[in-house]
């Protein structure tokens, strides 16, 4: 391996755990909900990974393994009628709004019981009934769309808030800058959440970005506060989410949050992630969102047995959802021709 290979760079280690976050004013019930959600996102992610290895998931897929605390924390802070938009790495964001595990798994398996009956696939999960307005495959494209959902809420006076998740790679796209400017000018009730996992696909984000924090350092350019949080500490994410969502709901305008996190796996199914220093991967494994939270809850007096019961319960749910997804039929071939237009079909001529 050449000297200048990315894997030989000095490791970028996680931020030190902020032990004081244990003292944040979060109800025990909320914390247990957060733990349950983290378990769900991790176990579904692990299951999807296994289904790839069994070659049951065709096409590509982008997992959020290691990054679950961001969507879990924000999901818990959102109101049921708030809107979410995510990038193509959107499984966790969809589940964290309450989408069914079976619907998500079946969509990746290309089954008729998938959330979109197999027409969207891994990169395009949508669950409108749960406020999930979509996962978007073109990097950065959904930030301007999130503005539109927020504008609509503003016009309708509904006080709904839109939360838009994207990766560090999205911050060097023109749409990111167009969206932030318009959101600030129109004072839209939108929260932009950058999940900075340090790598833009296979390239370290710091090598291709002019500023230290790809999202937060740009915030002052749009008159916004520079917010950087530990994206692996779900208490810190949840508390920040509550603050910026409340701010948006109160009509005080948009926020841009940069949550520092790390992928435990590769960018996508095909990626073995050999471009990362081993010491870096190990350091982040020691800063794992679920393990951190497990330890914190124990330190706060929650019984190990209670946490084990949550994990076991989720495991049973994931098994059941997998079985149900696998049992679903393939979509009928007529589905190719439906829902191009609002009449339900694809006819473009008479």
């Amino acid at each position: 391996m050449p000297e200048n290979h990315y894997a030989n760079r000095p490791p970028r280690t996680p931020p030190p755990l902020n032990e004081a976050n244990a003292d944040l004013d979060i109800d025990r019930e909320v914390r247990l909900h957060l733990y349950r959600r983290l378990q769900e996102l991790r176990q579904v992610g692990d299951r999807l990974h296994r289904l790839f290895l069994e070659n049951l998931v065709r096409g590509t897929s982008h997992l959020s393994l290691g990054m679950e605390a961001v969507s879990a924390g924000f999901g818990a802070a959102m109101r049921d009628d708030d809107y979410s938009l995510a990038s193509y790495r959107g499984h966790a964001h969809t589940l964290s709004r309450g989408a069914s595990m079976e619907g998500v798994i079946a969509e990746l398996l290309g089954r008729d019981n998938g959330l979109m009956r197999g027409k969207g696939g891994s990169m395009h999960l949508v669950d409108v009934n749960n406020g999930m307005l979509g996962s978007y495959g073109i990097v950065g494209s959904h930030l301007p769309i999130a503005n539109g959902a927020a504008w609509s809420a503003q016009l309708r006076g509904s006080d709904q808030v839109t939360v838009c998740f994207f990766g560090d790679g999205g911050t060097n796209i023109g749409a990111f800058h167009e969206a932030l400017n318009l959101a600030a000018v129109w004072k839209l009730p939108v929260v932009f959440v950058c999940e900075n996992n340090l790598y833009m696909e296979y390239t370290p984000i710091d090598l291709v970005t002019a500023v230290e924090h790809p999202a937060a350092s740009r915030a002052p350019s749009y008159g916004l506060e520079e917010i950087v949080i530990d994206g692996n500490d779900v208490d810190e994410v949840y508390t920040c989410a509550q603050r910026v969502i409340e701010r948006a709901r109160a009509g005080e305008g948009p926020s841009l949050v940069e949550a520092i996190t790390y992928r435990l796996g590769g960018h996508s199914r095909a990626d073995t992630a050999k471009y990362r220093p081993e010491a870096e991967v190990e350091a982040w494994q020691g800063h794992d969102a679920i393990e951190l939270y497990h330890r914190r809850l124990l330190s706060l007096g929650v019984d190990e047995a209670e946490l084990t019961a949550v994990a076991t319960d989720i495991a049973a749910q994931v098994d059941a959802a997998t079985d149900a997804a696998k049992a679903g039929p393939r979509p009928p071939l007529e589905e190719v021709y439906t829902q191009v237009f609002a009449d339900g079909g694809s006819s473009w001529r008479n």
Binding site: N147, A149, S152, T162
Partner: peptide
């Protein structure tokens, strides 16, 4: 232009 059409799309798909 991306902000214009993005705002239009997001509003249209949420009832405006």
């Amino acid at each position: 232009e991306q902000a214009i059409l993005g705002a239009a799309m997001g509003a249209a798909m949420t009832g405006v």
